[in-house]
Amino acid sequence: MKIQTFDTRPVALTIKKIVRENENTNTYVFDYPLGARSGQFVMLWIPGVDEKPFSVAYDNGTEFWLTICRVGPATKELFKLKEGDKVGVRGPFGTNYEFKKGDKVALVAGGYGAAPMYFCAHEAVKAGAEVDFIVGARSEDLLLFTHKVSGLSDVDLHIATDDGSCGFKGYTTQVLEKLFKKKKFNKVCTCGPEIMEKFVGEIAEKHGVDAEISVEKYMKCGFGVCGQCVIDDSGEPICKKGCVMKYSYLKRMPEFGKYHRDAQGKKHNF
C-alpha cells in the first residue's frame, strides 16, 4: 500500500502591508501563492507567541490577505508586528464555498465574518453569480469591508447595525428574511457568531435552501489529527470536514449554536 505524503511545516512569510480596518481590526497582506479557496483558513504562527486559525479574506493567486481582530493575547502580540516582520503560515486548510454562473447568492456576514464573506463575494462575482451581501455589526464603527464590497459589481450591499447607526436597525437575519420575500436565492452562505449562523440556517431552510456555514472552533493542528475541534455528536473534526458545512448537517449536531470547547476540551455554553 503506497501512501501519499505531504508537508505541513509552516512557511515563513514577510508581512508586505498592514491595512487598518477599524480600531481593533487589521488586514495583513502577504505576497505568496497560497492558493486558498473562499472559506478556507490558515494557521498563522506569531513566532515565540502562539499559532491561531484565521479565515482567508482574499487570495488572487499571488497575494493573500488575513483580516484579524484583536481579541486575545496572541492577536495583541500580532498587532505589535510591523510591515516587513515575518510570521509563519500553514495551510490552506478545510473545505470551501463553490459558486457557478447564474447562482443567486445571499451572503450573510456578522462582525469580523465580513472578511471571509468578502472573499466569497469576490469569487461568486467572478463565477458569474448575482450576490446580495448582508453585513451586520453592533454599530457603524465596527462594520467591516463595506467599502470593499460596494466596490464589487453585481453585488447589492445591505447593512444592519444593532443600534441603527448605519443601515437597517436590527439584525442581519431580519434583512435576510425581508430579501427572501422579494428574491429567490439558491445559495446562502454565512460567517459570523454561531447563534446568528444558526438563525440564518433556519431561515434559508424555510425557503428550501441548505445554507453553507463557516464553523469556528478551537483548533490546534488544522488537519484533523489533534481532535480539538471535533463537533458533537458526529465527532468529526471541523478543521477537516469543515469549516464550511451544510446546515442540514449542523442542525443535527446538538453542539451547534449551543456550546464550544476550550484548549483543554472543556465545554462552554454560548
Binding site: 505524503t5 508537508d7 511545516r9 509552516p10 494557521m43 502562539d50 499559532e51 489529527v225 483543554q264 476540551g265
Partner: peptide
C-alpha cells in the same frame, strides 16, 4: 501553546503537552 504539531513526508512531530480538562 501552538504550533503543537506538524508533519512531513517521513516523520511527524508533536508537543501538545497533554492538554486535558
Amino acid at each position: 501553546k501552538s504550533p503543537v504539531m506538524f508533519g512531513t513526508d517521513h516523520y511527524f512531530m508533536n508537543a501538545v503537552g497533554l492538554s486535558d480538562a
